[in-house]
Design a binder for these strands. Structure first.
Length: 835
DNA sequence: TTAGGGTTAG
């Protein structure tokens, strides 16, 4: 069977060496050393060594007179060594091989390691035979591995030919050829390996099961795996304990899990059949397919076969359950393993930790850590990385970075993954430049950025619209031979979208897809989302129709975007119909689909439908997210149904769905509107109890509430206290209070706050001045209006037509003719009275 | 044979 590979895979001429004679390797076991005599060397002599004698003879004489070790340690040897050519080295090694095999190997290594000498095939095989004879297989493998690195793929015919010509009857041929096949296999040159095996078969030489196993493994994605397996059986090579698990793994790789199970059933009773590893492999595959239940039944089957699940079995299953969100069951299995005397290890704890993190339940993750510490298991790099992820996910970047520093202080060398998590956090919070700093720190620490690290940064830059800088990074990545995938392309699409360059985005998409680089649906989804964002629902639908025509399968995200588009443009009924289209593709609407629709209905004031959809989600076991609840709460708030809103907030906590700051801000705003400031502040306290820091928006809502309620003193007091506590505020906090003071006519307090706002470094536009000037002038406060006007001019802001007209009107009404004339002059100068 | 990092939609 294997013979077919000789013919099929090496068509045409083999790259045989033109002349083997240039490599002086004895073809028989008669030693070259026997022929050594004094003769003039063919090697060109140099000025350094005017002695025309053959260096081979010099060296051999040296060995004889001083002994090998003493001679190679001397200066004379080192001066003569650089003159040797391949043929001469071959002769020396062959001589040593006969006299003292150990010296032959030492000499070979000395030349290679200390002098960087690249040995000939002949030398390498000579030493290989020495090592094979002594069963020094590890060293033998190393030599062959290096040989194959030099020779490359497709070299098997030539190397076999050479071996047979030069070493035909040597004792260790079988071992050397077998190791050659193994080296080919491990270097992923499987067809060369198959060629060597075929050659061995011709010569009646038996391959080892290790070589067969390695080949089986490397052919796991391919049906040829079965040819090799049959060959093992036909040749009568005894299988090892790994053989069946490698085959099982192969079947799993080929997505033939059912066949893998049947295969295992058939091997039951065999010496090495049905190993725990094989079962684990199958469980792992089922878990990866999202079928944790099936994995569980395999687990039971394993026990039925009398096998004892090991720590891997449990970890694989617990992982599958965690990913499926079944934390309770996962924890039960953890208890079960303890009961069976298998201690959960660091991997088990990390899996559980990640499981809680996936559900956004970091408190659960912390409990796992406590439990782990109690059991005397210390967190490792992976544990820390999961925790950093957790912090970052809840927006707690500083805590995440603190943990990163803690890792360093505990002597952990941050891995590329840990760095990537931190960089990702920084990018997500808009601190891309800090992310880049960390990236450089990482590289300075000797870690090489990979595709994901680059993708995170490219994405971060694009999201900020910095397409140019992203492109530089992209080029840097490509120059390091890291091939981008569609992720990077997606980032550029987002970058264009961010800058509103929709047609550029489309050109980019067309370029990427038409050059057949990728047909990734995610890219189309981003493009559809971009059209939707700019309210071009028609173009979004056209693109959708195009991908359908091209046979690309949409995802639920495709539909969610379209539904969002219809909702945004007020076409809620059509949006609803698209939900049925989702089902026609065998897809299921997600919480986002529902939330999008619910938000639209809520905006229409149709809370009945909103609540009906919430009910439908429950029936279909589609878990609402905190956003879903926030949408419902917002709708209820708008209708003044405060009690229901508070009730829903409590329901969320009960269901383990953590409200976020927006949820609280929504409901707090609602209480502010009905002037229930006491309840509003109570809710702020409640946020803190749930470890939610109020956001700048929370304070804006509260300040606005106090202002509207007429408690301007209270609002001022709150602002001062926030400033004293160095709490981050936005411009809105200031404009809210400035507005309130203007309305009340307290222009001086408004002025003070305005100065503070400017000094805080917020970007101030002409609209901020005009908001104040409008209000003051409306109240006829001419002096105060003029004060703000001069402030504006001092700040280097020129009036525009709109503000000019407001001022003219105010001065005119106040009978301030001088000011009217002065302003008119100014406006003419500025060209604001052109029309 | 098990654990940690990147995309789209509300």
């Amino acid at each position: 069977m294997l013979n077919k590979w000789k013919r099929l895979n090496f068509p045409g001429k083999f790259p045989f060496l033109a002349s083997l004679s240039s490599l002086i390797v004895s073809k028989s076991s008669v030693s070259v050393a026997a022929k050594i005599e004094y003769e003039p060397t063919t090697c060109k002599t140099t000025a350094v060594n005017p002695n025309p004698r053959d260096p081979v003879n010099e060296i051999l004489l040296g060995f004889r007179s001083l002994g090998f070790r003493r001679f190679i340690g001397g200066h004379y040897f080192r001066s003569i060594i650089s003159m040797l050519n391949h043929a001469q080295v071959d002769r020396i090694i062959d001589y040593l091989r006969v006299e003292d095999a150990e010296s032959a190997v030492d000499f070979f290594n000395l030349l290679k390691d200390e002098f960087g000498f690249r040995h000939s095939r002949g030398s390498r095989f000579l030493v290989s035979h020495v090592l094979a004879k002594e069963r020094r297989l590890r060293e033998l493998h190393l030599i062959l591995k290096q040989l194959l690195q030099d020779e490359g793929s497709g070299s098997a015919p030539s190397l076999c030919e050479f071996l047979l010509d030069s070493f035909r009857d040597w004792d260790s041929n079988g071992v050397v050829l077998d190791m050659l096949a193994l080296a080919y296999s491990k270097s992923e040159m499987v067809y060369d390996a198959l060629f060597v095996l075929a050659m061995m078969k011709d010569l009646n030489l038996q391959s080892s099961i290790q070589t067969y196993n390695s080949l089986l493994y490397n052919l796991r994605h391919n049906d040829i795996m079965w040819d090799v397996y049959n060959e093992i059986k036909v040749s009568g090579t005894p299988q090892s304990e790994h053989t069946d698990s490698i085959l099982t793994n192969g079947l799993c790789c080929q997505s033939r899990v059912q066949d893998a199970v049947s295969f295992l059933r058939n091997t039951e009773g065999k010496v090495f059949g049905s190993s725990v590893v094989s079962f684990n492999t199958i469980m792992s595959k089922y878990c990866k397919l999202g079928l944790a239940d099936v994995a569980k039944s395999i687990f039971c089957l394993m026990i039925k076969y009398g096998l004892h699940p090991d720590v891997y079995s449990y970890n694989i299953l617990i992982h599958g359950l965690c990913v499926a969100g079944s934390m309770e069951e996962a924890l039960e299995f953890k208890d079960d393993m303890e009961k069976h005397g298998i201690g959960p290890d660091i991997v088990t704890y990390n899996i559980l930790c990640k499981g809680f993190h996936l559900l956004g339940l970091m408190s659960g993750a912390w409990k796992v850590i406590q439990n782990m510490l109690l059991k005397g298991v210390n967190p490792n790099l992976v544990t820390y990385t999961i925790l950093i992820c957790g912090h970052c996910q809840t927006g707690n970047i500083d805590e995440g970075l603190k943990l990163g520093r803690e890792m360093l202080s505990r002597g952990f060398q941050l891995s590329i993954i840990s760095y990537s998590v931190l960089i990702s956090c920084l990018c997500k919070s808009g601190q891309v430049d800090k992310g880049l700093e960390l990236f450089h720190e990482m590289e300075a620490n000797g870690l090489k950025a990979d595709l994901i690290t680059y993708s995170i940064l490219i994405h971060g830059l694009c999201k900020q619209g910095e397409v140019q800088r992203a492109m530089q990074l992209y080029n840097e990545m490509c120059s390091k031979s890291i091939s981008p995938n569609s992720f990077a392309h997606g980032a550029f699409l987002l970058g264009f979208r961010e800058k509103g360059m929709i047609s550029d985005a489309r050109m980019y998409l067309d370029a990427v897809t038409m050059s057949n680089l990728t047909q990734d649906i995610v890219l189309y989804n981003i493009m559809i989302g971009s059209y939707v964002k700019f309210d071009d629902i028609e173009e979004a639908v056209r693109l959708y129709e195009q991908i359908i025509r091209h046979g690309i399968t949409p995802t639920v995200v495709t539909f969610n975007s379209l539904i969002y588009g219809f909702c945004r443009t007020g076409r809620v009924a059509e949006a609803r119909r698209w939900m049925d289209t989702i089902k026609s593709y065998g897809l299921e609407p997600t919480a986002i689909t529902y939330t999008t629709l619910m938000n639209a209905y809520s905006e229409e004031g149709n809370m009945d439908t909103v609540l009906a959809l919430l009910q439908e989600m429950e029936e279909k076991v589609i878990r609402p997210t905190h956003v879903t609840y926030t949408v419902v709460i917002k709708g209820l708030c708008k209708q003044g149904k405060l009690h229901e809103s508070v009730q829903l907030l409590e329901d969320m906590h009960g269901k383990g769905i953590t409200p976020d700051q927006i949820t609280y801000n929504t409901i707090i705003q609602c209480f502010c509107k009905v002037k229930d400031m006491r309840k509003a502040f109570e809710l702020v306290d409640e946020m803190s109890l749930h470890n939610l820091e109020p956001t700048p928006a929370t304070y804006n809502v509260l300040l606005n509430g106090l202002c509207v309620f007429g408690d301007l003193k209270g609002a001022d007091g709150l602002l001062i206290s926030l400033q004293e506590r160095n709490i981050k505020l936005t411009k809105v906090a200031y404009t809210t209070l400035i507005k309130a003071h203007c309305v009340k006519g307290d222009a001086s307090r408004a002025g003070v706050l305005f100065r503070e706002m400017v000094e805080k470094g917020f970007e101030i536009s002409i609209r901020d001045y005009s908001a104040v000037i409008n209000r003051l002038s409306k109240r006829g406060l001419i002096t105060e209006t003029k004060f703000f006007l001069s402030m504006m001019l001092c700040d280097g802001v020129s009036p525009d037509q709109e503000i000019g007209e407001v001022l003219l009107n105010a001065f005119h009404q106040g009978g301030d003719t001088n000011s009217v004339l002065e302003l008119l002059g100014q406006m003419i100068k500025l060209g604001l009275l052109g029309d």
